[in-house]
Amino acid sequence: MALKLKKGTSKHSAYDLRDPNSQVIERHTLAVIVDNEAGVLARVIGLFSGRGYNIESLTVAEIDHEGRTSRITIVTTGTPAVIEQIKAQLGRIVPVHDVHDLTVEGPSVERELALFKVAGEGDKRLEALRLADVFRARVVDSSLTSFIFELTGSPEKVDAFAELMRPLGLKELARTGVAALSRGEPLASAGRL
Results as ranks from 00 to 15, higher is better:
F48H: 09
N54K: 04
I72A: 01
R92F: 09
P80D: 07
V104C: 08
T152M: 09
V94W: 00
Q85F: 06
G52S: 09
V104L: 12
T103M: 10
R71G: 05
A61C: 07
T77M: 08
D35K: 07
T77V: 15
P95N: 13
G153M: 05
A38R: 09
N54S: 14
V104R: 05
A128G: 11
V82D: 03
V44F: 05
T103V: 12
V139P: 00
V118Y: 08
N36F: 09
S108Q: 14
V96E: 10
A128Q: 06
D35L: 11
L58Y: 04
R166H: 10
K171T: 07
I45F: 09
I86H: 01
V94G: 06
I86N: 02
F147P: 01
V158L: 15
G67V: 02
L126D: 15
E110N: 13
L58F: 15
N54P: 00
S108L: 06
F48L: 04
L113T: 11
I55G: 03
E62K: 07
D35M: 10
L129N: 09
F116P: 03
A132V: 00
L47E: 12
V60N: 13
T176D: 10
A179I: 15
G91H: 08
V158Q: 01
S146C: 05
V178T: 14
A42T: 15
G78V: 08
F147S: 04
L170P: 02
S154R: 12
E66K: 14
V158F: 04
D123V: 11
T176P: 02
V40H: 03
L47Q: 10
E62I: 06
V44L: 14
M165T: 03
P167M: 03
L173G: 04
V75P: 08
D123N: 04
G46Q: 12
P155Y: 06
P107V: 01
V99S: 09
G122P: 11
G39N: 11
I55S: 06
R130K: 14
A174S: 15
L90F: 14
E172T: 07
I74K: 00
T76D: 06
A180R: 03
L131M: 10
R130T: 12
V99E: 13
T79L: 13
K171V: 15
E112V: 09
A81H: 03
T59M: 12
E172F: 14
Q85Y: 07
L47A: 02
G106H: 11
A38M: 14
L131V: 02
M165Q: 10
L113V: 13
G153C: 03
S142K: 11
A119T: 06
M165L: 13
D35Q: 15
V40Q: 08
A137S: 11
S143G: 13
T145R: 13
G52M: 04
A180H: 04
K117G: 08
F147I: 00
T76S: 10
G169F: 13
D133E: 14
G46P: 11
R166E: 05
I74S: 00
G78D: 01
E150R: 10
G177M: 11
V158W: 03
R136M: 08
